[in-house]
Simulated assay, not measured.
Amino acid sequence: MSAALDNDELAEATRLLRESAAGIAPRGGDRRRVRALRFQPPGFDPALLRAMGEQGWIGLRLPEEKGGAGLGLTALCALAEELGAALAPEPLIPAMLSAALLAAVDAEAPLDGLLSGEALVLTAWQEAPSALAAPGTAEAPRLFIPQAGGASAFLVPVRQGDGMALLLQPAESAELSLQKTQDGGFFGTLRPGSGTPIGTVSPGILADALEEAALATAASLLGVMDQTFTLTLDYLRTRQQFGRPIGSFQALQHRAADLQIQIALSRASIAAAAALLDEGQAPRAERRAAVSRAKARASDAAMLVTRQAIQLHGGIGYTDEADISLYLRKAMVLASQFGSAAMHRRRFAEEAREDEA
Rank of each mutant, 00 (worst) to 15 (best):
K295A: 10
R293A: 15
R142T: 03
E108Y: 00
G161R: 08
G247H: 04
L210R: 05
D106T: 02
G317P: 05
E19K: 10
A341N: 03
A331E: 13
A128T: 07
M1W: 06
F348T: 03
V333W: 12
Y327V: 05
L252E: 13
P283T: 07
A268V: 06
A302I: 07
S194N: 08
L222C: 12
T306M: 14
L222M: 07
G150S: 08
R267G: 09
A107T: 00
N7S: 15
L167P: 11
I93Y: 01
L326T: 11
A151Q: 01
A11H: 10
L111T: 06
G314V: 05
E81D: 11
I270W: 04
L17D: 08
T181D: 12
G59K: 00
S177N: 10
G243C: 12
Q55I: 00
R191T: 14
E108F: 02
G193S: 05
A341Y: 08
K180L: 11
I198R: 09
D323F: 11
L92T: 02
V224H: 10
E356F: 11
E108P: 00
T137G: 10
Q250N: 09
E350I: 09
R27D: 07
A36P: 12
L166P: 13
G314Y: 03
G161E: 05
S130Y: 13
Q241D: 07
Y318H: 15
I310F: 05
R27W: 13
A322Q: 10
M52Y: 07
L178E: 09
A275G: 14
I205E: 13
V156C: 03
A285R: 04
A148T: 10
S336F: 13
E175W: 00
R159L: 10
H254P: 00
A86F: 04
V121S: 04
L71D: 07
R15D: 13
R255A: 12
P42N: 08
R293M: 10
P197L: 02
T319M: 05
P94L: 04
A207N: 11
L92S: 02
A218Y: 04
L83M: 13
D320C: 02
Q262F: 02
A251V: 14
L76R: 01
L265E: 15
I198T: 08
S266M: 02
P89L: 09
V224D: 12
S116F: 00
S266Y: 03
G53F: 00
A268F: 08
L49R: 06
E9M: 14
L168V: 10
L155A: 06
P157T: 04
D45L: 10
G84W: 02
Q253W: 07
G70V: 01
G56L: 01
D112E: 12
G136C: 02
A51R: 06
I246S: 06
P141Q: 13
P94W: 09
M225S: 07
D112P: 00
A4I: 03
S173Y: 10
K180M: 10
F186H: 10
A138I: 01
V156L: 05
Q55R: 15
R293P: 03
L62F: 06
V305C: 11
L115E: 03
L73M: 15
K66Y: 00
I261N: 03
E211F: 04
I198P: 04
F144W: 15
L252W: 03
A69M: 12
